[in-house]
Design a binder for these strands. Structure first.
Lengths: 199, 199
DNA sequence: AATGAAAGCGGACCACGGTCCGTTTAGGCT
DNA sequence: AGCCTAAACGGACCGTGGTCCGCTTTCATT
């Protein structure tokens, strides 16, 4: 009665994904991506995705929990490259430049990226787990840079203060309703950084 | 063939509201308010409101455009008193205190208020006109105070920078997910004001 | 008071997100 | 190979937001 509890007991909990489940997950992500690219975020209906992937609707919900969850998965996939650049790409966004340069580059990049993916981001809001996961990455990075800069005060809250004006609804309000141009928003954010960082 | 174009041509455009329309509007607002108070924001279904007010569903949409619009109307009604306090109430929130005191009082008040009405605010997001109208009041006020304080720089963007961390999704993230306590958030915001205002 | 037209009204109807549960299938065990 | 169980599947079903269009009401004019 020998029994390895699992072939690879590393990371005990997640009991592994069944092969059909993995296949369907890929098919669904792929179908969703195609729909976004070809007809926009609004066209990504749960029924449409299911049909296009050739699976039942229930399966979509089983995999992603909700429409927002599906969007979040799409978003994570498309942000992975960016996260890689931030952590290991060329300076000033990646490591190698002085912290202040990195922070400014980060802000610019995040701001522009958020505006590009605005529709997807908005469609993804409300997905519990990811919202925090993806946010968590940016927060951790900014917190780290503020620490490197020797900023004094409640770093967590200063991080929030810097990140909040980069959130999609606010950027959309500024660009679409107030008619503020992107360069001006970037300049404003850099000014904010200066005020926050320089004691 | 004499014809005054209208009884009161003041404010040319709005052609006046028909009496039955006004009556229905009141009934609907009232019904909605009762539903919120008795069973929470989620219970405010368009059908439920319509039935309770004794009108057809189409009427609800005709009046408020969407669920978010209805919520926004509710919110406006409940924020009117607060706006009055800000513009004409006792100091330090109202006029009479030095600008810096007023700004700090404003932030505290807005922060707490936003957390109290969080559910309603979230249900109201997406209503085009009001989002801007209600936001506009706070922005104008902060902009004015920053001006009074002699702050230099792009006042519009600094206003956004101060207001953004008071937005509901961010406050909710801080209190509910990160477990930060309200007093700490308030302190953080006051620190932010200091950094932004003191050149 | 009668009239005409624009504003308002109501509720059937549609699309979409989300749930449920009976059925199918992967894949470890013997 | 055959079995057994937990996982996965599918699609009928439901509630809700939002639209549409033929009918009704208001009210200015005469």
């Amino acid at each position: 009665m020998s029994h390895e509890p699992e072939l690879l007991p590393l990371l005990g909990e997640p009991p592994r994904e069944r092969s059909d489940a993995a296949r369907n997950r890929d098919a669904l992500m792929c179908a969703a991506k195609e729909l976004v690219d070809s007809a926009g975020v609004d066209a990504v209906t749960m029924d449409a995705v299911a049909e296009r992937a050739g699976v039942g609707k229930g399966t979509v919900f089983r995999r992603f929990g909700s429409r927002a969850g599906l969007m979040a998965a799409l978003l994570d996939a498309s942000e992975a490259a960016w996260q890689g650049d931030v952590m290991g790409g060329p300076p000033p966004l990646g490591p190698g430049a002085p912290p202040r340069e990195r922070l400014l580059a980060f802000g610019r990049s995040r701001l522009v990226g958020n505006l590009e993916r605005a529709a997807l981001v908005q469609a993804a809001t409300g997905a519990q787990p990811r919202s925090y996961a993806a946010y968590s990455f940016t927060a951790t990075h900014v917190r780290y840079l503020l620490h490197e800069l020797g900023v004094r005060g409640d770093i967590d809250l200063l991080t929030t203060a810097l990140l909040a004006p980069l959130e999609v609804p606010i950027l959309l309000q500024q660009t679409q309703i107030e008619g503020i141009d992107v360069d001006r928003i970037v300049a404003g954010w850099e000014d904010l950084v200066a005020r926050v960082v320089d004691a």
